[in-house]
Nucleic acid binder design. Structure first.
Length: 885
DNA sequence: CTGCTCACG
DNA sequence: ACGTACGTGAGCAGC
C-alpha cells in the first residue's frame, strides 16, 4: 500500500478504448455493458495492483446544450457518440459512486486538462502520481513524480511510461511531446502540424533546437529543405503545439482530501454488478470482502481519512478582559493593519471575532449574548473597524459590512478583500471560498471547524493579502483593484442595505390581474387540447402539440420536443392553440417570477427589496444581481414593462432618476478598433444603427428605412457577440445567404472592426487571455481545446470580453465616483440599482438639478475614449414612468 | 439536482 | 465538416 500515490484516470479515454476493444455485451434486459465492463475491470485491476492512497477520475464535458440541440431534419445524419456507448457513461459514473471514487468534469474542458490540473496540485503536495489512460497526449505530464500507464491494443495490457521510457520510445523528453505534435501534427485530433515534417525530422530538429519556438528562432541555421517546409508555417506550428498542450491550471476547486481511496461501498457495488450481470466481477468482489480496506471501514466522515497533506493551524489567544481588548487595539494600531475573520451569520450577528495582527498571535474575541458595541468585545471591534488608520483585510468584505452593520458598526479603512482579489486573478472560477483560495494561492489546507480553524482563517487572510496583492501587481491589475473593485465593495453594500422601495399594493393588483389572465388562457388551452394537462410542463405540452395534435417538429432538445417561443412562433399558423400558449407563457412568467416572486422578497421592515449584487460571479467583470435579480425586470414588452411601476421612491417628495450609457459597447468597439466609420459616426453624433444600415445597404443616411435600421441593429449586436450568418439569419428571420451578405458588406465597409477582431483573437492565442480597458483579465483556455466547438466559443468570448468587460470597468468607475461625490456633498440621494449600463437613483426633488449634473459628469467622464460617452437621463414618479428630462 | 424556458443588458 | 452570438438568474417540472 502506497499512501502517497495518487492514481488519476482518464474516464473518457478508458471507456472509449473498452467500447472498441470488447464486443457489444449486454445483460438479459438488453442493457449494453461492454464499455462499462471493461472500464470497471481495468480500474479494479489497477487499484488492486497499486493499492494507492488516493484515486480520482476525470471526464470530458462539452457544451452539451449546443451539441445535443439538433434540428429534427438533421436527426440521424451524424452520431458523435454511438447510441450504444452514451448510456454507458452514466453507468460508469454510478459505478464510480459505488466505489467511492470521486470524478471530476468541468464544462468546456477535456479530461486531459483536469488531469493536468490534478497532477500539478498533487505534485505540489509531494504525491507520486500514476495516470491511467489510453491517450498518448498524457505523456507530456510525465515527470520524476508522475508516470503514465498507457493501455495497449486491448485494455488489459498496460505499458508504464516514466521519463526514461518516453525518451527511449520517442527520442524526446516528456516536455517535448507537445513540440513533437506541433511539428508532426495529429490527424485524429485535427491538429495540422507542419506538412512534410514527420516523426524522424521532428525528433532530429528537437534534439538540436529544443522546442518549436527554438527551431523557429534559429530558422536561418536550418538546412534549406527544412527551412522551406517551415517558412510561413511558424504560426501553425505554434498553434498546433498549443492545441496539443494540456492545460494545468483549469479553474476548478480541487480538494485532494476527497480523493483518498477508502475502498468501495460493497453493498451498492454488488447491487450494480448484479443488475448488469457482471458475474466474474461479482465473484471477485464477494471473495475479497472482509479483507484489506473494506474491513476497516465504518461510517466515518470523509475527513477522517485525510491524505498526507499538511493541515494549516494557527495559534491564538482568547481575549476577554477590557484590559486585553485595549492591548489588542494597541497592537493593531501599532501594526497599522489587521486581518479580520468574523464568525457570524447575516441577519443574526457576530459570534466571534478573529484578528490576525502581523507579528502577533491571532486574537479571539468571543461575543457574549447580549453584548453590544458599547462594551465588551464588540466595542473593541467597533474601535478597530471605525479607526480608518488601521487597515483592515477581509475575505468577502461586503458580507463583513453587513455583519458589522447589524451591530451598529461602520467599517472604515477597508484595505483588502481576498475574495475580490482572487476573482480578479481568475474571474472564471465558480466560487471563491477562503479554503479554496488558500489552497490555490498558499498551498495550505484550512481545517473545517473549531476555534483553531477560524484562527487559521484570519491568519490565511493576512497571508493571502500579501500574496494576492503581489500577484495583482505582477499582472498590473493592482490599480483596478485599489481604485475600482475595492471601493466598489462599500458602494454595493450601501446599495444593498438601502434597497429599493416597492409599491406592495400595485404588486398585488398586478398579481391578481395576471391570475385571471392565466386562468382564462389555461381554460381555453385545455379546451382546444381536448384535455387538462400541466401547461408548465414542457414534456406534457410536447405530447399535446406533437403527439396528439401532430404539429410539425422543428427542433428537439436533449430530452424531447422543444417547445420554446421560437418553435411556437413557427407553429402559430398551424393551430390556434399556439398563440394562446405564447400568451400563457408570458403571463405565467410575469406572475411567478416577477409579481409573486418579488412580493415574497420585500422586507416587511423596510418595504424595500434588498437584492444582493455579486461582485465575483461573471467572467467578464460585470456585476450580477440575485434574490431578487433586479437586473432583468421586464421592459421589452408592454405587458411586462408594467412591473416597473412597483419600483418607487422611498419617501414622498422623492423621484426615480435613471441614467444610462447610450450604446456604450459599440462606442468601446469604436475606440478599441479605431474603425473610421464607427469613430466618425459617434463623433458626429449619428445614430449608430442608422449609420451601419447606410454602410451595409449602401444608401445615404437619410434614405435608411426603419426596416433597414432594424437589420443593421442586429448586425451591430452580432458583431459584439461574435457573429455567424446562421445566428444573424435566425435572429432576423432572413435567409442565411442574406445574413451572410450583410456581414460581408459590414466588414467591407468597416475594415477596422475586422482587423480588431483578428488582432484580439491572435493576441488571445498568444497570451492565453484577453484584457479590458482597465486591464481586467480573463483567461480563455477554451482557445486551446481540441474540440472545435469549444475553441470557437473561446474565440467569440475573446472578442466579446474586452468590450463587455470594458463597459463594466467604466460603469464601476462611475459608481465609485458618484458615490464619493454624493457623500462629500451631503446629498440625500441614494443610488439603488445598477443594470449593466444604467444606474438608478432615489432622489429628493430638491436635489434633482445638481444630481443630473453630477451623475452625467461622473458617467461621461469616467474614462476618456476616442469617442464621446453619452448618458441619457430620465426622471419620474416610478421606474415605469421615467421620462427624458 | 438538472434541464428547459425566459426575463434582462 | 464542425454547429451556430456574449453575459447573467429564477421558476418550474420531473428524475
Amino acid at each position: 500500500m502506497s499512501l502517497d500515490t495518487l492514481i488519476v484516470i482518464d474516464g473518457n479515454s478508458l471507456i472509449h478504448r473498452a467500447f472498441h476493444a470488447i464486443p457489444l455485451l449486454s445483460n438479459s434486459q438488453g442493457v449494453i455493458t461492454n464499455a462499462v465492463y471493461g472500464f470497471t475491470n481495468m480500474i479494479l485491476k489497477v487499484l488492486k495492483e497499486q493499492d494507492p492512497g488516493l484515486v480520482a477520475v476525470a471526464f470530458d464535458k462539452g457544451k452539451v446544450t449546443f451539441r445535443h440541440q439538433d434540428f429534427a431534419d438533421y436527426k440521424g445524419t451524424r452520431k458523435a457518440t454511438p447510441d450504444e456507448l452514451r448510456p454507458q457513461f452514466i453507468l460508469a459514473k454510478e459505478i464510480l459512486k459505488a466505489m467511492r471514487i470521486p470524478y471530476f468534469e468541468l464544462e468546456g474542458y477535456e479530461a486531459d486538462d483536469l488531469i493536468g490540473t490534478i497532477v500539478n496540485q498533487a505534485e505540489a503536495s509531494g504525491l507520486n502520481i500514476l495516470i491511467l489512460t489510453g491517450d498518448r497526449d498524457a505523456l507530456q505530464l510525465v515527470s520524476p513524480k508522475t508516470r503514465v500507464m498507457l493501455t495497449r491494443k486491448g485494455i488489459t495490457e498496460i505499458e508504464l511510461f516514466d521519463e526514461g521510457k518516453v525518451w527511449d520510445r520517442f527520442g524526446v523528453t516528456p516536455g517535448q511531446i507537445v513540440d513533437l505534435k506541433g511539428l508532426q501534427g495529429d490527424p485524429s485530433d485535427n491538429i495540422p502540424g507542419v506538412p512534410g515534417i514527420g516523426e524522424k525530422t521532428a525528433v532530429a530538429l528537437l534534439k538540436d533546437y529544443g522546442s518549436v519556438e527554438g527551431i523557429i528562432e534559429k530558422i536561418e541555421h536550418l538546412p534549406p529543405r527544412f527551412q522551406k517546409l517551415l517558412r510561413g508555417k511558424e504560426d501553425q506550428a505554434i498553434l498546433s503545439k498549443k492545441l496539443a498542450t494540456i492545460i494545468r491550471d483549469v479553474p476548478m476547486e480541487l480538494d485532494l482530501s476527497q480523493c483518498s481511496w477508502r475502498g468501495p461501498d460493497h453493498q451498492r457495488l454488488l447491487e450494480i454488478f448484479k443488475e448488469l450481470e457482471f458475474k466474474s466481477l461479482i465473484k471477485q468482489l464477494t471473495s475479497e470482502q472482509g479483507t484489506a480496506k473494506s474491513s476497516r471501514e465504518g461510517k466515518k466522515k470523509f475527513e477522517s481519512d485525510l491524505p498526507p497533506l499538511e493541515t494549516y493551524q494557527a495559534g491564538y489567544q482568547t481575549v476577554t478582559s477590557q484590559e486585553d481588548f485595549d492591548e489588542v487595539l494597541v497592537q493593531a494600531s501599532h501594526a497599522g493593519r489587521a486581518a479580520v475573520f468574523l464568525d457570524g451569520v447575516r441577519g443574526k450577528g457576530i459570534r466571534a471575532v478573529y484578528l490576525a495582527v502581523p507579528g502577533q498571535d491571532v486574537y479571539l474575541l468571543t461575543v457574549k449574548p447580549g453584548d453590544d458595541s458599547s462594551h465588551g468585545s464588540l466595542s473593541a471591534l467597533k474601535a478597530l473597524c471605525e479607526n480608518e488608520a488601521i487597515k483592515k483585510y477581509f475575505h468577502d468584505a461586503k458580507d463583513a459590512i453587513w455583519l458589522l452593520h447589524h451591530h451598529g458598526i461602520k467599517l472604515q479603512g477597508l484595505a483588502f478583500d481576498t475574495m475580490v482579489a482572487a476573482y480578479l486573478l481568475n474571474p472564471a472560477a465558480s466560487h471563491y471560498d477562503l479554503t479554496d483560495i488558500a489552497l490555490e494561492h498558499l498551498g495550505i489546507v484550512l481545517p473545517p471547524e473549531g476555534e483553531t480553524a477560524m484562527a487559521a482563517r484570519a491568519e490565511a487572510i493576512l497571508r493571502l493579502t500579501e500574496e494576492l496583492f503581489k500577484k495583482l501587481v505582477q499582472r498590473e491589475e493592482d490599480r483596478l483593484f485599489i481604485e475600482v473593485e475595492l471601493p466598489l465593495v462599500a458602494v454595493l453594500a450601501e446599495m444593498e442595505m438601502a434597497g429599493v422601495a416597492v409599491d406592495k399594493q400595485e404588486l398585488k393588483e398586478i398579481s391578481a390581474e395576471l391570475h385571471h389572465s392565466t386562468e382564462a388562457l389555461a381554460a381555453k388551452i385545455h379546451e382546444l387540447a381536448g384535455e387538462n394537462f400541466n401547461i408548465n410542463s414542457p414534456k406534457q405540452l410536447g405530447q399535446i402539440l406533437f403527439d396528439k395534435l401532430k404539429l410539425p417538429v422543428y427542433k428537439k432538445t436533449r430530452t424531447g420536443y422543444s417547445t420554446d417561443a421560437e418553435v411556437l412562433e413557427k407553429l402559430a399558423e398551424e393551430h390556434e392553440i399556439v398563440d394562446l400558449l405564447l400568451q400563457y407563457r408570458q403571463m405565467a412568467k410575469l406572475k411567478s417570477t416577477y409579481a409573486d416572486g418579488l412580493a415574497a422578497l420585500v422586507d416587511p421592515q423596510t418595504g424595500c427589496l434588498h437584492s444582493t449584487f455579486h461582485q465575483t460571479v461573471t467572467a467578464t467583470g460585470r456585476l450580477s444581481s440575485a434574490e431578487p435579480n433586479l437586473q432583468n425586470i421586464p421592459i421589452r414588452l408592454a405587458s411586462g414593462r408594467r412591473i416597473r411601476k412597483v419600483f418607487i421612491p422611498r419617501q414622498k417628495g422623492n423621484l426615480i432618476l435613471t441614467a444610462d450609457y447610450s450604446q456604450i459597447e459599440l462606442r468601446i468597439l469604436a475606440h478599441m478598433s479605431q474603425d473610421k466609420s464607427f469613430l466618425d459616426a459617434f463623433r458626429q453624433g449619428q445614430d449608430i444603427h442608422t449609420r451601419t444600415a447606410s454602410e451595409v445597404f449602401g444608401v445615404p443616411l437619410d434614405q435608411v428605412t426603419p426596416e433597414m435600421r432594424n437589420r443593421a441593429k442586429a448586425v451591430n449586436f452580432g458583431i459584439v457577440y461574435g457573429i455567424s450568418d446562421f445566428g444573424l439569419a435566425r435572429d432576423l428571420k432572413v435567409s442565411r445567404q442574406e445574413a451572410k451578405s450583410y456581414i460581408e458588406n459590414f466588414f467591407a465597409r468597416c475594415p477596422g472592426v475586422r482587423h480588431y477582431i483578428d488582432r484580439v483573437i491572435r493576441e488571445a492565442r498568444e497570451r492565453g487571455y484577453v484584457t479590458t480597458l482597465l486591464n481586467r483579465r480573463r483567461y480563455l483556455p477554451e482557445l486551446f481545446s481540441k474540440n472545435f466547438n469549444i475553441r470557437n466559443f473561446g474565440e467569440r468570448a475573446a472578442m466579446n470580453t474586452p468590450i463587455q468587460g470594458s463597459a463594466a470597468d467604466i460603469i464601476k468607475l462611475a459608481m465609485v465616483k458618484i458615490s464619493k461625490e454624493l457623500k462629500e456633498r451631503d446629498f440625500a440621494t441614494q443610488m439603488v440599482l445598477q443594470v449593466h449600463d444604467e444606474l438608478i437613483f432615489d432622489a429628493p426633488e430638491a436635489e434633482i438639478e445638481p444630481l443630473i449634473v453630477l451623475v452625467r459628469d461622473c458617467m461621461q467622464n469616467a474614462l476618456t475614449l476616442d469617442v464621446p460617452l453619452v448618458v441619457d437621463i430620465k426622471l419620474g414618479p416610478n421606474w415605469y414612468e421615467t421620462k427624458p428630462i
